[in-house]
Write a protein that binds this DNA or RNA. Structure first.
Lengths: 163, 163
DNA sequence: TTGACCTCGTTGCGTTTGCAACGATATGAG
DNA sequence: CTCATATCGTTGCAAACGCAACGAGGTCAA
């Protein structure tokens, strides 16, 4: 189809230029690239608008969001699902505990596990942030337009498959 | 529709538990969350499988990929498109220059600009990585299934809109 | 019960990151 | 021209990060 500069056969810069500018096969069609750009943009935008004003970081937001939707869980459960390094989750949890937003206690049946749980203060914070988060998401969906639901569906399906 | 734990009306943990487990409104349906998880997973997977073995980092890969598809550009053009901090691009470029994969020269018409350009060595590296990248992407698309093209389309459209 | 082996969460450490500040260059008004 | 203002890329610095190693706890076979 469309080769141009990213063609497998492209060897030297001269050859690339000889084929002229590439109209459609640009950066924007390499999937990992697209995902990274969109994700970073969305996360940063969301953090800028809402999260910072509550004095929490992005990793901290992810942890309490997880706790809010799933109930009390272990550190492991979070970093596996969210794809954060476990030390990142651990440190975020420590900061959240210091702030009094979550509690940490050893799971009695398996004493290796640390059970994280939102405190009342944590829930109160979430009840302030949640409307903002939902509003942000809604505006994001609006931007996606009519393909939005399908897009989200594909995303969810993929994440479920991939484990 | 489906409220449960993420409901705007959710105030306390007790209330949350009273509604019971939430079957569908889980983490996996909050869009920024989904995007972050997928993007991080894809980037890391790609880096693990292919990039590391060529001795370059993810930011470096993004820079040379951009140069390969767009031709010589300034630092600014890269970090605006790819959503990396400009210092990140700057440092990646310095490392790439040290490795002899790109060249840096001052733009003569605007001496503030630094024009980055792949060297022959850089092009040779890209000609090795590109097939692997395309293969990785193809397998990713396969996983997405028949919604793949639509998904990619939505992504591209959104990125273009958002500037 | 012991010992080998596994998993969980934390921590130490070197590297990378993001932010702000900077020097150098460009632009435009007066 | 001069001065104020803006933009570009680099760099200093504190914070955050990822990785590996660790201690503590669990599992299971011998």
């Amino acid at each position: 189809m469309n080769f141009g500069c990213l063609s497998v056969h492209n060897i030297s810069r001269i050859k690339c230029y000889e084929t002229g500018p590439v109209p459609e096969f640009s950066l924007d069609s390499f999937l990992p690239y697209q995902l990274a750009a969109l994700s970073s943009r969305v996360s940063r935008e969301f953090a800028k608008t809402y999260v910072s004003k509550f004095g929490i970081t992005i990793p901290e937001w992810r942890v309490i969001f997880h706790l809010h939707t799933s109930g009390p869980v272990s550190v492991r459960e979070i970093f596996q699902r969210v794809d954060m390094d476990k030390s990142k989750v651990s440190r975020a949890a420590s900061r959240l505990e210091e702030s009094g937003l979550i509690s940490k206690k050893t799971n009695p049946t398996d004493r290796r596990l640390v059970e994280l749980e939102l405190t009342l203060k944590g829930y109160e914070l979430m009840s302030k942030i949640t409307p903002l988060a939902l509003d942000f998401e809604r505006r994001l969906m609006d931007k996606l337009g009519e393909q939005g639901p399908a897009f989200r569906e594909t995303l969810a399906h993929f994440l479920k498959e991939d484990g």
